[in-house]
Each structure stands twice: as C-alpha cells, then as structure tokens.
C-alpha cells in the first residue's frame, strides 16, 4: 500500500543539497519499501562532460588530457536516499543505482538499512544530490508498506 509519494525535478542549482520529506505511519507494519528512481543517470553531452572533468582535475592540480578524460566517460548524476524514523536514523543507501527498491523490516533489510520493526510514527525520507551534472534530473520516491 502506497503511503507517500514525491516527484521533483532538479537542476544544477540543486547540486549538493539534502531534500527532506516527512511522512507518518498511522500504525505498525510488517515492512516498509522505499521505491527510489531518478533519470537521467548519465550526461550525454560528451564535450561538456570532458570540459567538466578537465576543469576538476585542473583544480586538483592534476594534468589531464582530453584523451584521458574520454576514458572516464560517461559522467553522471548521483542521488542517494536515506531514512529516519521515530527512533532515529534507519539507514542510507550510497550507491550508483538509479532505479531500485529498498526494503526495511525486522528480519532482513536492504544493505545500508537497519533491521527494525516498522512502527507507527513520524518518518523522514531524504534525497541527497551528491552530483547533478545534467541540465535537469527528475527523481521519484514512493513509500509503500506491507501488513
């Protein structure tokens, strides 16, 4: 059963920010699922990507040729999701996957999340923009619960 949904389009101005979305569970459940996706993952402007890479390496004092930069393509967006509940931080998923469901329950939660009872109370799901390199990126979070 879906209990919360948020969909948002971000731009480069939203890079390196945390977006917090509170929601409430009105009773205890067996399991909570965070369905998280964002698109696009990769930046398809090759020349602009090379410029970004070369600029960052130059800032770090490392000489990088355009040929070497090409080997590091594609670059992409990185958004991560985390969850807090009535008793504190439940977990965080820091990986490159951009279309995935994270499960939270008492027995076997997804990697990065604690095994906990899904109890009634106030929760906060957060989306963190570690890297927004495309002109726009759209993310969606759908929270489902199971009895």
């Amino acid at each position: 059963m879906e209990v919360f949904k948020v969909k948002k389009t971000l731009t480069r101005k939203d890079d390196k920010k945390h977006f917090y979305f509170p929601f409430v569970l009105d009773k205890d459940y067996f399991e909570l699922v965070i369905n998280f996706k964002y698109f696009p993952k990769y930046y398809d402007d090759k020349e602009a990507s090379i410029d970004l890479l070369c600029a960052e390496f130059e800032r770090a004092g490392v000489c990088m040729s355009r040929e070497d930069a090409i080997k590091k393509l594609p670059i992409g967006n990185l958004l991560t999701v985390s969850l807090d509940g009535p008793f504190g931080h439940i977990g965080n998923a820091h990986n490159q996957k951009n279309d995935i469901a994270y499960i939270i329950n008492k027995e076997k939660s997804s990697y990065g999340f604690l095994n906990i009872d899904v109890v009634k109370g106030e929760y906060v799901v957060a989306v963190s923009t570690h890297s927004v390199v495309t002109d726009a990126v759209e993310f969606e979070v759908i929270i489902e619960v199971k009895e």
Partner: peptide
C-alpha cells in the same frame, strides 16, 4: 587531493 564532483562524490 583526489578530484571530486563530477568524477567522484565530493572526494576532494
């Protein structure tokens, strides 16, 4: 000193 975004998430 590792180059960071967009190559890596805030490494620098």
């Amino acid at each position: 000193c590792r180059p960071g975004s967009p190559f890596c998430s805030g490494c620098y």
